[in-house]
């Protein structure tokens, strides 16, 4: 078991948003977490990544057999947890390649492996950039500064490609993407999908799942998983809408 979440209660600013969430994820699996606005999707993403504004009230999150909640956000990242942001942050003045090399080398240091110098890293980065069809001209530019919505999301997947996480959480990666950008991002994720990692796709819409086929679909409503199934559940949900789930689960 790579990730096991047991009866997780969490929230922000004293407001409980997750109310007893359970989830089990194995390596090699892709899980889609779907749900209407306000169901707690983003809270789950932020809690797993360790965002300081979110507070865990009770419950357990075990990652590779360790209590994930005990670790700081940067430690979690070095342990292989990656969050692709719904709204990637701009970091003016720091180039993409500087940023990525620092992050990569921090992870290598953690793993006791050799760090890459700028030249070596540049070659590595060029290879990875092909995965999301990103032009090397983006390396010199400040992180996400002046990037279009689609470029920012591609940059998130490039970071995922560089850092090779064991558990990747993609928070609304499809939001704000046109069809071409969605295809590129989805194909990138498919290339990164492997037996050695797991991916959690957090999404409102089924659209992304046409491109990235999940093994499991979980429907989140009112801070709990209310329905689970295979990829066909996403289609059913698309057809019947979230009201159907709310009705089925008896939640408002």
């Amino acid at each position: 078991m790579l990730l096991e979440i047991k009866d997780l209660h969490a929230g922000i600013e004293g407001r409980e948003i997750l109310k007893g969430l359970n989830l089990r994820v194995n390596k090699g699996e892709v899980h889609a977490i779907m749900g209407p606005n306000g169901s707690g999707k983003s809270t789950l993403s932020k809690v797993l990544a360790g965002h300081p504004s979110y507070e865990v009230i009770s419950g357990l999150v075990s990652y590779e057999g360790k209590d994930l909640l005990e670790f700081e956000p940067d430690e979690r990242a070095r342990m292989g947890v990656f969050l692709a942001f719904q709204y990637p942050v701009e970091v003016p003045g720091v180039s993409n390649s500087q940023f990525l090399r620092l992050a990569y080398n921090e992870k290598m240091k953690h793993l006791g492996e050799e760090e890459l110098d700028p030249l070596e890293f540049n070659d590595y980065l060029k290879e990875k950039a092909k995965i999301v069809e990103m032009d090397p001209s983006f390396f010199k530019r400040s992180v996400n500064e002046g990037f279009s919505g689609g470029e920012k999301k591609r940059n998130e997947i490039l970071q995922m490609a560089v850092l090779e996480p064991t558990l990747a959480i993609l928070d609304e990666t499809d939001s704000g993407l046109d069809i071409d950008a969605l295809r590129i991002v989805a194909e990138g994720v498919n290339k990164l999908r492997s037996e050695n990692n797991a991916i959690i796709l957090v999404t409102h819409y089924q659209r992304l799942l046409n491109y990235i086929e999940p093994d499991f679909v979980h429907v989140l409503a009112g801070g709990k998983i209310v329905k689970e199934g295979g990829k066909e559940l996403a289609l059913e949900l698309e057809e019947k809408g979230y009201d159907w789930v709310k009705a089925v689960s008896g939640k408002p």
């Binding site: 990544a49 940067d74 990242a77 992050a103």
Partner: peptide, 15 residues
Amino acid sequence: EDEEMFYLLSRGINP
């Protein structure tokens, strides 16, 4: 900025 800090931390960069 807290959000900028968190973004870098979430990539494994120490505080």
